[in-house]
Simulated scan of single mutants.
Amino acid sequence: MTRIDETRDFIPVRIAILTVSDTRSLEEDRSGQTLVDRLEAAGHVLADRMIVRDERDAIRAQLQEWIDSAEVDVVISTGGTGLTGRDVTVEAHRDVYEKEIDAFGTVFTMVSMQKIGTSAIQSRATGGVAGGTYLFALPGSTGACKDAWDEILKYQLDYRHMPCNFVEIFPRLDEHKRRK
Rank of each mutant, 00 (worst) to 15 (best):
I15E: 04
R172E: 08
G127I: 05
R49Q: 12
I116L: 07
V88K: 07
A130C: 01
G105I: 05
T23R: 07
D57W: 06
S77Y: 05
V72H: 06
G127F: 02
S123R: 05
H176V: 12
L63W: 00
T109V: 11
D48A: 13
P163K: 05
E28R: 08
R3F: 08
S31A: 07
F136E: 05
D87L: 15
K180D: 09
A103G: 14
K146W: 08
V74A: 09
K99S: 14
R94C: 14
D174V: 15
P139V: 06
G140W: 12
M162A: 12
V90C: 09
G131L: 11
A125H: 12
G32A: 10
D5M: 05
Q122I: 14
C145V: 06
A137Q: 09
I59H: 01
R124I: 10
R53C: 10
F108N: 03
F166K: 02
T23A: 11
A16D: 06
S141M: 06
Q156E: 13
M113K: 07
T19P: 11
Q33L: 04
K154H: 11
G128E: 02
K115I: 13
V52Q: 00
H93G: 14
I116R: 00
R24A: 07
E27H: 00
T126N: 07
T106R: 14
A103W: 01
A125V: 13
V129W: 01
S69D: 11
I51Q: 00
D174K: 14
T34W: 09
G117I: 08
R178F: 11
L83S: 14
A137W: 04
R60G: 08
G131F: 08
F170N: 02
I17Y: 01
C145Q: 06
K99L: 15
F10M: 03
R124K: 15
M110Q: 10
S69L: 10
S77A: 13
S141E: 09
A41R: 09
R60T: 14
R14Q: 12
R178L: 13
T81L: 04
T84W: 14
D174M: 14
